[in-house]
Write a protein that binds this DNA or RNA. Sequence first.
DNA 1: AAGCTATCCAACCGCCTGGCT
DNA 2: GAGCCAGGCGGTTGGATAGCT
Length: 261
Amino acid sequence: MGRQPCCDKQGVKRGPWTAEEDEKLISFILTHGRCCWRAVPKLAGLLRCGKSCRLRWTNYLRPDLKRGLLSTAEEQLVIDLHAKLGNRWSKIAAKLPGRTDNEIKNHWNTHIKKKLIKMGIDPATHQPLANSKAATSQSTDTAESAKSSETREELSMKEGSHTDMALPTDSSEQSSWLESGNNAGGQDQEQLVNWLSETDLPMDEPWLNFTSSNDDVLGIVEGPLPWDGAADWLLDYQDFGMCSSNLIDNSTLHSSDGSNF
DNA sequence: AAGCTATCCAACCGCCTGGCT
DNA sequence: GAGCCAGGCGGTTGGATAGCT
């Protein structure tokens, strides 16, 4: 039995979202919370499929998103996490507050991959390209992880980056996972992955503090918000909990200048 | 200025997983 | 246990834009 498509493609709009559609989706979600995505387009008056709405929200409209290029520290963290987790972008994104899996994936494919290749590092294995064959035939994980840390150092040297900011240095928990990562073999690797999968890092961890307060230092350039500043108030709802509903009523869905948004 | 190429990133697609009946 | 459904994930595509000749 074939799987049903996520939505009836007839009468469903595709392609780039308009400001009007964004507005409807934001209004709906802020009013009702995230409920059943399949029902969202109907209830919000959108000619989109639920999947498209979910993607638009998670990748672009969420008020807690941080826009702009990844900082060097974030980039470094992505590299480290990728070395441990592989292409599990959602897991990687979970460790970078305000970043989406799509964003990280794109950044990896367009920037980091090239950078690593340029440096002679295989982005897939995080091993030196010249030795990649030999390296893959080696099953000694310690050797691999040693090279991996060399890779990190090399990168940070060349980048002049804040590598130490990307990695935990003073938290015992963080250092323990790093250690297990350096031993990266079988069980340890598994434990690490489990830890990464299960642990929600506290947002106030200093080493994860990429938020605006540190942006100057880290060189993060905040890009324009999708709504071009017309709804800066949205930022006030960064902690509205995504799932919580009815926190705001419809009357709040107007920007301060009185225009509907 | 025009044409071509490279790059970026939002959006789509298909598959997988987990929850429910 | 089987089937269905919704949500989530990772890979890929395609339009827009920048850069180059």
